[in-house]
Amino acid sequence: MLKVLGQEIWMADGSDVLAMMGFRYPTRMAVIKLTSKRLLVWSPIALTTEIRSKVDALGEVRYLIAPNSLHHLFIADWKRAYPDARIYAAPGLREKRKDIDFDSELDGTPLPEWSNEIEYVVVQGNSITSEVVFFHHKSATVIFTDLIQQFPEGWFSGWRAVVAKLDLMIGREPSVPRKFRMAFTNRHTARESIERILAWPAEKILMAHGTPVMENGQAFLRREFGWLVA
């Protein structure tokens, strides 16, 4: 079900739970309506009849975003359903998904299709993935994928629960997992990317895994990235 997150932006949690190294991850996507009435779909979830009906009621799907090299599993299904939509890939994803004909790579170059309404920064210098972070001006929402996470108590069990807690995946508020902090092998490059994100007048923060931050987003980001940016 689509839920209103802010002005002209919605989110939907998928019914699928994906497994990676035994850890279970829920799915989530965001839909943004541009002034052209066209829709941008970030990190598409499984395309069910219900989801398609709700999305179609908002407008025409024209842009599909794979925001990092880990969030791409359903994007080909969406392309088949919306053949006129353009697909944008995070850096490195083209090599991983040679079966998908991506229209463009998100390499930091502003895109005229939506650059006046949505900015983005490629967070580089991380050995796990190069994540593309977006800022939707109208709703003052920053959209992360995996660089910020939060899972509820009890989501993981056994030794995985212990690992998740040590990794900062479980806590009172969303946080940057330790594995991602350690994977920033080029901190200078990463710092430059995060500083650009911190300059956005953020109010809300959405992430693929975790409770959205609905107010004081900029202060939240400065707190969560204080270990990287003084």
Rank of each mutant, 00 (worst) to 15 (best):
D99W: 09
D99I: 10
D99A: 06
I100H: 09
S104V: 10
S104G: 08
S104L: 12
E105Q: 09
E105Y: 08
E105L: 09
L106G: 12
D107R: 08
D107H: 11
D107V: 11
D107P: 08
D107M: 08
G108I: 10
G108S: 09
T109V: 14
T109P: 10
T109S: 13
T109W: 13
P110K: 11
L111Y: 03
P112K: 07
W114R: 00
W114L: 02
W114T: 01
N116T: 06
N116K: 07
I118C: 06
I118Y: 05
Y120W: 13
Y120A: 13
V121F: 13
V121I: 15
V121W: 11
V122D: 04
V122R: 02
V122Y: 02
V123C: 07
V123E: 01
V123F: 04
V123A: 10
V123S: 06
Q124N: 14
Q124S: 15
Q124D: 14
Q124L: 07
Q124H: 13
Q124F: 03
G125A: 13
G125L: 14
N126A: 09
S127P: 11
S127E: 14
S127D: 14
S127C: 14
S127R: 15
S127Y: 02
I128G: 02
T129P: 01
T129S: 06
T129F: 05
T129A: 06
S130T: 12
S130D: 12
S130G: 03
V132Q: 04
V133P: 05
F135N: 11
F135T: 10
H136E: 12
H136N: 07
K138C: 14
K138V: 15
S139G: 09
A140D: 11
T141C: 10
V142T: 15
I143K: 01
I143T: 03
F144K: 10
F144A: 13
T145E: 03
T145P: 02
D146Q: 00
D146G: 00
D146N: 01
L147M: 11
I148C: 02
I148W: 13
I148S: 01
I148A: 01
Q149D: 02
Q149V: 04
Q150Y: 14
F151R: 00
F151P: 00
P152H: 12
P152T: 12
P152A: 10
E153Y: 07
E153P: 05
G154Q: 08
G154V: 03
W155F: 09
F156E: 14
F156L: 05
S157L: 04
S157Q: 06
S157I: 03
S157R: 05
W159G: 00
W159R: 04
R160K: 10
R160N: 01
R160L: 01
A161R: 00
V162S: 02
V163R: 03
V163S: 00
V163A: 03
A164H: 08
A164P: 09
K165C: 04
K165W: 07
K165P: 01
K165R: 14
L166G: 09
D167R: 05
L168N: 15
L168D: 13
L168I: 11
L168M: 15
M169S: 08
M169K: 06
M169G: 03
M169I: 02
I170E: 03
G171F: 11
